[in-house]
Design a protein around this nucleic acid. Structure first.
Ligand SMILES: Nc1nc2c(ncn2[C@H]2C[C@H](O)[C@@H](COP(=O)(O)OP(=O)(O)OP(=O)(O)O)O2)c(=O)[nH]1
Ligand SMILES: [Mg+2]
Ligand SMILES: [Mg+2]
Length: 357
DNA sequence: GCCGTTTTCGGCCCGACTGTTTTCAGTCG
């Protein structure tokens, strides 16, 4: 049985998308996204909730709360209908194109009347983006390639597929000169069931040869971006791989950053701010002076934030921060706990006892 | 739009890469 929370999450995310297209204030759509996450992660089914109960949900205030209430009562939200009247569904689809966001989607709609991915592709092929402010030849080609990617996207892959690719690529990069450490991060390290892309982290004093090696691997179909510390490629199978290279001293902070999740990162960065600190992928710093506090290991960074080391599988901002702060993290079963698997044989194979016995 | 034992107003995570930008916005991780 799907919960009402799922439908509410979907309308709040749609509201956030439409606001990001229409509004200049980036914090408003983010507030709707955050509320959508909170509703999705709320333990109870909110079907039939009254306004007072709805307002118990974190990140849901008066404005969003009333919209949720209206949706639960009537199945629609009048304010959402008003936004829908201003932005065709196809324009919202356009922001799914990798590299095209809400701002430029709005320019295309407003200036050229483009209101679907199909129309956009035709406009690019007919050269109609030329002359539009902020849309040069490269941008048009990038959007065209983005549409191809969107269309050909096989979506997320099973963790086993990503794990195999990770092993292959890590093996290749490990031998590059200057590589001191290598690990996979992102959703693969968190052991999510499906993986959107592969995230690899390398520690090296000399990033340039690592980036060169990475972007010229035989598995590379196309280089999406290539910089001094970060590059992205696309494999022939259409899977994206992101590589981040940091100095060995920053390994722990970088591993925390790249392991995520995004929501977990934001929560622990907020904790840092409240302590007069700043957390990024290079380390934990004093906010005022900018002086480094710690960076080398995950344990040290978490400890200075007042937290125990949190297992990657829990880093989803689904209560692990609160649990960690209270010292109530669950003891997870790890490989070291597994002494063997309890099993027996029956006379159906090579045993003596029957199955019933 | 949400939220707060410093605060009910003024912040909101923080930084890399790209393109066309004459100095930075947009998009993404
Ligand atoms: N601080 C911060 N970190 C981010 C943000 N977006 C992504 N990250 C970090 C945490 C993510 O786990 C990590 C890798 O990003 P991805 O987009 O690949 O996400 P992830 O691997 O978690 O999920 P995926 O299966 O790829 O969809 O980068 C962000 O907006 N802020
Ligand atoms: Mg990923
Ligand atoms: Mg990624």
């Amino acid at each position: 049985m799907p919960r009402a929370n799922d439908a509410v999450e979907a309308v709040l995310l749609e509201y956030a998308d439409l606001l990001s297209i229409l509004s200049d204030d980036p914090f408003k759509p983010r507030a709707y996204e955050k509320a959508a996450r909170a509703v999705a992660g709320y333990p109870a089914d909110i079907a039939g909730f009254d306004l007072k109960q709805i307002l118990q949900i974190p990140s849901v205030g008066r404005s969003i709360g009333e919209k949720i209430h209206e949706f639960l009562q009537t199945g629609t939200i009048s304010a959402l209908e008003e936004l829908r009247a201003q932005i065709p569904p196809g324009v919202r689809e356009m922001i799914r194109i990798p590299g095209l966001g809400p701002k430029r989607a709005m320019v295309l709609y407003r200036e050229l009347g483009i209101s679907s991915v199909d129309e956009l592709l035709r406009a690019i092929e007919e050269g109609r983006l030329a002359g539009l402010r902020g849309f040069g030849a490269k941008t048009a080609e990038n959007i065209r390639a983005g549409i191809e990617r969107l269309r050909g996207a096989g979506g997320r892959v099973l963790i086993s597929v990503a794990a195999d690719l990770a092993e292959l690529l890590e093996g290749r990069l490990r031998d590059v000169s200057g590589v001191e450490r290598i690990a996979h991060a992102g959703s693969l390290r968190r052991m999510c069931e499906t993986i959107g892309d592969l995230d690899l982290l390398v520690a090296s004093r000399d990033p340039t040869p690592v980036m060169e090696a990475f972007t010229s691997l035989p598995e590379v179909e196309r280089v999406l971006a290539k910089g001094d510390t970060k590059s992205s490629i696309l494999t022939a199978q259409g899977l994206q791989v992101d590589l981040r290279v940091v100095q060995p001293e920053a390994w722990g902070a970088a591993l925390i950053y790249f392991t995520g999740s995004k929501a977990h990162n934001i929560r622990i960065r907020e904790l840092a701010v409240r302590k007069g600190l700043k957390l990024n992928e290079y380390g934990l710093f004093r906010a005022r002076s900018g002086r480094l506090v710690v960076a080398a290991t995950e344990e040290e960074v978490y400890e200075r934030l007042g937290l125990p080391w949190i297992p990657p599988t829990l880093r989803e901002d689904r209560g692990e921060i609160e649990a960690a702060l209270e010292g109530r993290l669950p003891e997870l079963v790890t490989e070291r706990d597994i002494r063997g698997d309890l099993h027996t044989h029956t006379n159906l194979t090579d045993g003596l006892a029957t199955l019933a016995q």
